[in-house]
Design a protein around this nucleic acid. Structure first.
Length: 238
DNA sequence: CCAGACGTTGTT
DNA sequence: GTCTGG
DNA sequence: CCAGACGTTGTT
DNA sequence: GTCTGG
């Protein structure tokens, strides 16, 4: 087993699960869906969001009431880390959020919603990798359960990061992977964001989204390369 | 007491 | 094979 | 998650 | 910061 020194977050065994997603939505729909008020920054269509990139999240503003958008780097660096590693965790297992020092405080105090319109999983076909796109049936906005933290370097420079909570895969995703992002229903947004929600209530929200409410598409290999970030990522497989 | 770790999924 | 970059 | 690099000295 | 291992 390789070193687990947080200054060297290597992953010698493999990669994390929910490692690529899509967020393509109109500003107005995002505002409506997430209950955002006031001016929003322009939302670039993102067909291929990858780890280490800056992502859009929804959180409570400092007043603790209104919701707002924030830009956080995907890959959680806890505030106590001595150095930000190169590959911080992009996912956090729902079952162990309270046990893991890396996630526990963020789970209790710093939760967010990660807006998305789908996520990708890869099927190994020989030595090829065939991406599949998972989304809500008929499309539409999803919200992944997210955690965040702010790390400060010795020079005071701040680095705000986040990760996506995972749960066991539902029947639709299970053929490809045994984990999937925790997708929160709209009626659960308030409880997830509320810093006073009891932990057991939060845990009850972290369950596989029903397969009946989702659909899958087999897409071409464009999404494999992070340089591709346009509609070609959804082109059907040849 | 101090030192050192602190993570995920997937593959074997 | 393993690590970095996106 | 996948793709792509993986090295040196010396020259532009 | 907090926990485990020695």
């Amino acid at each position: 087993m390789a070193s687990l020194d947080p200054t060297n977050w290597q992953n010698p065994l493999g990669q994390a699960m929910c490692g690529r997603y899509q967020f393509v939505a109109d500003q107005k729909d995002v505002a409506d869906h997430f209950g955002l008020v006031g001016d929003l920054p322009a939302l670039q269509p993102r067909y291929n969001v990858a780890p280490t990139q800056v992502v859009v999240v929804v959180g409570l503003k400092p007043d603790g009431q209104q919701r707002g958008l924030a830009l956080l780097r995907w890959g959680l660096i806890p505030r106590w880390a001595k150095e930000p590693g190169k590959h911080p965790p992009i996912n956090a297992r729902a079952e162990t959020l309270l046990e893991k020092p890396t996630f526990r405080d963020s789970f209790k105090q710093r939760r967010c919603l990660v807006p998305a319109t789908g996520f990708y999983e890869w099927e190994k076909v020989g030595r090829r990798k065939a991406p599949h796109h998972f989304r809500l049936a008929g499309g539409g906005l999803m919200a992944f359960a997210g955690l965040w933290d702010v790390w400060a370097g010795p020079d005071g420079a701040k680095l705000a990061t986040c990760c996506v909570v995972t749960v066991p895969a539902n029947r639709l995703v299970e053929p490809l992977h045994d984990r999937m992002p925790a997708v929160l229903a709209r009626e659960d947004f308030a409880a997830w964001l509320d810093p006073t929600t009891p932990v057991c209530d939060l845990q009850a929200l972290l369950r596989p989204y029903p397969a009946e409410g989702m659909e899958a598409l087999v897409v071409g290999p464009a999404v494999n390369n992070v340089r591709n970030d346009g509609p070609e990522c959804l082109a059907p497989a040849a």
